[in-house]
Design a protein around this nucleic acid. Structure first.
Lengths: 375, 375
DNA sequence: CAAGGGTCTGTAAACGCTTACATGTCGGAC
DNA sequence: GTCCGACATGTAAGCGTTTACAGACCCTTG
């Protein structure tokens, strides 16, 4: 391995000078500089990251931890699982920010049932300057311990998390908007809800909003609920539940996300149910296939990439500056109307959704999910 | 920041002892051990990664570099761009391997037009023990320089790359299988090819195989070719080209990947072209939406996740052991027959594709892409 | 009872870099 | 000719670990 000493020796200078040339922190005579650069080039010298980090006591690395829900089957590689698309978006956002400065990104996937969550996160915390933690559930105690050691930002996390910044999409307002649209515009009364995992803050928010909207509208009711796992399969399962009482379909099915909605629609359609004529269906997230499906899926567009960017901005601010006040940031979402909710075919309208006041995030009421009867 | 010294002091021992307790490399008396562990717990000590790396001269980090094709428009965030799905798959595969040992993953995205490619890669090489470089094009000189410094594996890379290991799917055989299927089974004669970027080794392989198959079959011919960018949009553009001569459609369109195929089918269908009745269409990769489309897309399944795993295995082997012989590894693909090629609706058959001998990878013939006339 | 051999623990030298401080050199002003 | 201040460069002290080696202690054994 080529070190500073090798370069210094070859250029006939001291290691300090080499370092100075490499960083331009101080002036070095032109011919010395040239000699050093030539030596660097000749030897193919690249500074050792570990040594630099140690000397600067700054690693220039941030960690992105993708916490995935344990409900998902490990074996079955859900190429469509929510988390993949979600984290991919976040990743891009983060990367964009990072490349501007010269940070690096350390990536880790974690299942939230992993016994080792705490251990792995702690170990990770020794390798980075700050942590971005996604979605899933990390025990609050672990969070607190981490937050004491270094800056932590929860991406799409539970806003009630203590001690860490939270950046999230405005799930509440999004869910509210869909529910209102279905009830007020399309006259839906009997709603079925395909929920996400109870461990997902996003899902919890969406459910809470739905319940509030329904409660405020006499005549409307959530007539059934199925706890899914944000996946295509969950949607299929939920559809099977609905088809057990084919004469008794709800007016609308609100799905926890697009994958779920698509899975559901496929099974329903295969059974002869017409969408939206017989049942309206909505998703959440606005992933790529949503607009491709027949009928195109009405959904809520989440600014996932931006989520990554903002989280990253905040983390870097915390790392480099004196700690700003702890903050919860809520990004606005859009209601995307397409055909599956009953809007005329060909409709494709994006509507800004009024933004919920960040401060007003409620510690969402959490009734235990009413599992649909059988299975 | 809590250091070894703090722990040592609190436990009333030397730092060496603390280190020993933490790693179990040597025996320590039980009560000493307990005292140390208690101190660690109390102080919330976590070893500093940089210092460990320096002392062990091993970083336990590998870098995954996702090189993306510059053809893609930066602004337009192709949520469906090939590279996203591809790298997402690779990432998962890599992650699975890494978590078994306690390696970490440093992730970088790079556009292959970036002037700074060399600089960024070099800098990166100081922070990791080995590098996994994806798909896109890194100047051979840079590759060589990197490979001299540390182990490098090219994922889905150009098999003619010197000095680095290459792990790739058997694109040649896959493309061969689709082409043969279309011509021999469905009697297609006039083929249109929507190609991928010329800078993508995968695309080059697929084209070469197609050309060889066609050349061997009198009567069959590639009647047109459009150089796309592996994206949904590319497919739409290619479709527009085809629709300029609506009376003169080819028998089949072979697309560089699934996104392209889906984009193409949408536009053709919107113009009243029936698939597969009027034109057969095939994709490549077998991404999630492929089976969902109407008609379901005939395609070639790539073991992307496995690609990540194998690459990673190889890299780790190189890092930890004495360098094994340089090697090219080709992973088998599957032909997935669905409706879009003309197989009866409802068909869904996966066929193993005979595996090409790894050694036999040809320095693919590279005729300059024949761009379709207009635009 | 001294010597020999285990155990356990401490000392100190790396690891490769950054950077405060010291040193040296040179030109000009007096 | 001496002195001063720039400027260029070298010296050495960290940064927080790991680990080879040395030392201390305690038991056996002859």
């Amino acid at each position: 391995m080529v070190t500073l000493y090798d370069v210094a020796q070859r250029a006939g200078v001291s290691i300090a000078t080499v370092s100075r040339v490499l960083h331009g922190h101080a002036r070095v005579r032109q011919d010395t500089r040239d000699r050093v650069l030539a030596a660097v080039e000749d030897l193919g010298y690249v500074p050792d990251g570990a040594a630099q980090s140690l000397a600067r006591s700054r690693k220039d690395v941030i960690g992105l931890v993708c916490v995935e829900h344990s409900g998902l089957d490990l074996r079955q590689y859900d190429s469509e699982a929510m988390s993949r698309l979600f984290y991919d978006g976040v990743l891009r956002g983060v990367e964009e920010r990072l490349r501007e400065d010269s940070w690096s990104l350390l990536l880790t996937f974690l299942r939230d049932d992993e016994e080792l969550v705490a251990a792995r996160l702690l170990a990770l915390s020794g390798k980075v300057d700050g942590l971005l933690i996604g979605e899933g559930v990390v025990p609050p105690a672990v969070m607190a311990r981490l937050a004491k050691r270094l800056p932590v930002v929860a991406v799409a996390g539970d806003p009630s998390l203590r001690g860490v910044d939270v950046v999230s999409a405005d799930n509440w307002s999004g869910a509210q908007a869909v529910a209102e649209h279905l009830i007020d515009v399309h006259g839906a009364r009997r709603l079925f809800h395909v929920d996400g995992p109870a461990s997902a803050p996003d899902a919890v928010m969406r459910r809470a909003a739905l319940d509030v909207v329904v409660a405020a509208r006499p005549g409307a009711a959530v007539t059934g609920r199925y706890e899914g796992r944000f996946s295509f399969h969950s949607g299929e399962e939920a559809a099977a539940v609905l088809l057990e009482r084919p004469g008794d379909l709800p007016d609308a099915v609100l799905c926890a996300n697009d994958q779920t909605a698509i899975g559901l629609m496929r099974v329903l359609q295969a059974a002869g149910v017409r969408i939206p004529a017989d049942v309206a269906v909505t998703g959440f997230d606005d992933i790529f296939p949503a607009s491709l499906y027949d009928p195109p899926l009405t959904t809520v567009h989440q600014p996932i990439r931006e989520l990554g960017q903002r989280s990253c901005d905040r983390l870097i601010a915390r790392i480099s500056g004196p700690a700003p006040r702890r903050r919860i940031e809520l990004l606005p979402v859009e209601l995307v109307l397409r055909g599956s909710c009953g809007c005329p075919p060909g409709t494709s309208e994006r509507r800004e959704v009024a933004r919920r006041k960040p401060g007003a995030v409620p510690p969402a009421p959490r009734p235990p999910p009413v599992r649909a009867a059988s299975r």
